[in-house]
Design a binder for these strands. Sequence first.
DNA 1: TTGTATGCGTTATCAT
DNA 2: ATGATAACGCATACAA
Lengths: 342, 342
Amino acid sequence: MKTKGITIADVARRAQVSQASVSRYLNGIEGNLSTETAGRIQKAINDMGYRPNAWARSLKTQRSGLLAVVVPDLANSFVPAVLDGIEAATNDAGFSLLIGNSQNDQMRESALLDRLLQQRAEGIILQPTSDHVSEPLRALVSEGVPVVLIDRLTHDELVLDMVGLDNRGAIRMAFEHLQARGYRQIVYVTDPPDAVSSRHEREQAVLAHQSAWGAVRLVVRTHNDPGALTSVLKEAVDIVPGGHTAVLCSNGMTALYALEAIRTIGYLVPGDLGMMMIDDPTWAPYVLGGITSIAQPTFNLGNRAAQRLLNRIHHTVTKPLETRLPGQLMIRNSTMCPLREE
Amino acid sequence: MKTKGITIADVARRAQVSQASVSRYLNGIEGNLSTETAGRIQKAINDMGYRPNAWARSLKTQRSGLLAVVVPDLANSFVPAVLDGIEAATNDAGFSLLIGNSQNDQMRESALLDRLLQQRAEGIILQPTSDHVSEPLRALVSEGVPVVLIDRLTHDELVLDMVGLDNRGAIRMAFEHLQARGYRQIVYVTDPPDAVSSRHEREQAVLAHQSAWGAVRLVVRTHNDPGALTSVLKEAVDIVPGGHTAVLCSNGMTALYALEAIRTIGYLVPGDLGMMMIDDPTWAPYVLGGITSIAQPTFNLGNRAAQRLLNRIHHTVTKPLETRLPGQLMIRNSTMCPLREE
DNA sequence: TTGTATGCGTTATCAT
DNA sequence: ATGATAACGCATACAA
């Protein structure tokens, strides 16, 4: 009912050759096909609209040509950007991409991993919902399925390949820029750290600068209370006024949260307040006359992760590798501190 | 090397039963398993970490549990939003999702379709790069593979299921809103229509209003010349000043293009110029104090498309259906026409 | 250069 | 209620 069930046997019969020859032709095997029969086979294939059956092939070869990607939130703009890099690398290598959305739910993530493994994906790229290693993930790894983490690490004893942003470096770049611009107080807005390693790393890096700055505040974004930030912001600007206070946002979502707060209060940026964010979504240049940001190398990030995975699949690589890619400072209007205008 | 090759036979041996029983257990077949043996089988499965092999199963059942989605641009925010809706529907139905990025290239699209079909996807959701029906697509449809189009139609004789925005309605909503707000001239910014049906529909709808308005201009977005729009804008505002001219953008990308032009000129929105767009990306509320938009029901769009596809797969449905979902007007600051302030 | 025959891991038919 | 066993469509070792 699906494909009309044209098999290699049908083609063979039509072309007056054996199944083996057809198979050889399909796989382009070396010193074998006489141009004459090759032609007959090709013709038969065209005539009948034959399409090889990947299942049967996989059953023999133990190779599925499938790779899986599991992410916690498809809607987060970071994800499609990374996916783009993954797709570019895997497609060229002849793999197809299975995708799963864990919706930030560890149970769902486990179920997905399981399902994708039944499909016999040859490897998995995972942006884990949490640094806690779920049982299915552990099992899967011990079965020898190649796994590459993106953006986030798992802790515990399980060390895997990982490629992500150099978070400490990114935060350092941000602080250096803000300092050079004359800012004297930072309000850092982050998502609830939960058990997400990248959030922790960024937060830790921020705290590391606290001693040098003296004036760094942390605010955790909350969905139900958009006003939580406004009071902190007002208080901070009261203490260090003159536009010498800056909000630093941990990512695009928290930046939108901060924008909301800023609009509510009615602050002008950069007049009353500076603003900056990690991550560089498409809209960054257009809001507030341009928001300064640390861009993540999203495409490369995905590309490198995919390459790493392909290596593991093909050459059965050595030790797990942690690859950290640098962010890139995009200077825009939102951090034009009033007193240091140029 | 991949999965350690634990088969149903291994489980059967371990549980002291036949392969058939294990298979029956796995598929939860009705009047068969004695609780006693069921227990033994379950135990064996756990002990050995057995995972069914989807290939072999598919080979027998002729069902892969795979669905494919092919889109022209993963990075376009519309796509992940729709994907979200697709994922939600298909996952619940026990399908896994294969994804392909055609990168706006019809050749690549064809290659992808072919590859995904070799993987024996049971159905395809396609946002076509063009309304021209490629040969592989035609072949695939005539083979009986269910296809549901999203966002765009194919013309020609090939009529397929489609779910997309009611573009005419969306444009009408936009014009009605703009008129009610007191705008007297519209500059419509669109992507090059190429052979994309949704772009055509929107453009046609805009032109349909031209006679009633008298003052509607079309501008096509160009990558290499961001200045093309600025001159049109200046000229338009010269003719109909006082903030009574509005830019209407065909989507998020053209909106960013327009924002660039507006910034270059230095117009204030809505003081000097109104602005509005089709599509409602996350940043819409935050740019220019909020950009009025017609939001697409992205999640529903994906969800409906997926449901339609599942119907076709299961119940071998009737005629192709064209489903048009209404947009939703999001009124914000950018269309607060000066003279009609409230 | 080409053909024959076996098995990949399951499901399903037919026995028992 | 359970066990043998024949396909499913293909790749490959072995023959010819």
